[in-house]
Simulated assay, not measured.
Amino acid sequence: MRVVNEVKKEEVKITLFDWNNKYLIKFETGGMEQTFKISALDVPEEKSLELMLEGEFFEDVKERFNEMHQSLQKAMKNF
């Protein structure tokens, strides 16, 4: 597995990997992470992946983190 790029944006660590004819985009914040796998055949060049770190896709990732956090908090109340 090769790290293509690593950036931090709005408290979210983003790591791009090249692995096994796939690109992995890993988003991390706090104790949570989201990973997306994309076939290398669907990506014209590695720099194209950086476009996915902007706009609606990134906003959806942040919203999903909020949902994950709320779900965890709700589950922790049951202990």
Rank of each mutant, 00 (worst) to 15 (best):
T35H: 14
F27Q: 08
T29E: 13
D18Y: 15
N20K: 13
Y23I: 01
A40G: 08
T35A: 06
I38C: 05
K22V: 00
M32Y: 14
W19K: 03
D42C: 00
K13L: 15
F36W: 15
F17R: 03
E33H: 07
N21D: 08
Y23S: 01
E28Q: 14
W19N: 09
P44L: 14
E11Q: 11
E33V: 03
K26H: 09
E10S: 11
F36K: 10
E28H: 15
T29Y: 07
V43N: 02
G30W: 14
G31S: 11
A40E: 13
S39Y: 00
E11G: 06
E28I: 13
T15W: 04
K22T: 01
T35Y: 14
T15S: 02
L24T: 04
E33I: 07
D42A: 05
V43T: 05
I14Y: 02
W19P: 02
M32G: 04
N20Y: 08
G30H: 12
N21Q: 09
L24Q: 04
A40S: 11
K13H: 06
F17D: 05
F17M: 04
S39A: 11
N21K: 10
Q34E: 15
V12E: 12
Y23K: 03
D42T: 03
F27R: 13
E28M: 15
N20R: 09
G30K: 07
E10C: 05
Y23D: 00
E10L: 05
F27I: 05
V12H: 10
G31R: 11
E33P: 15
E10D: 14
I25V: 07
E28N: 08
L24N: 06
K13N: 10
E33Q: 08
E10P: 07
F36Q: 01
T29A: 11
K22P: 00
Q34N: 14
I25D: 01
F36D: 02
D42I: 04
N21C: 06
E28L: 10
V12D: 13
T15M: 05
T15V: 05
M32P: 07
Q34M: 13
P44W: 12
M32T: 07
K22N: 07
E11R: 02
Q34G: 12
V12G: 06
F17I: 09
K26M: 13
Y23L: 00
E11Y: 10
I25W: 15
D42Y: 07
T15A: 02
D42W: 08
W19V: 02
Y23A: 00
T35R: 13
K26I: 11
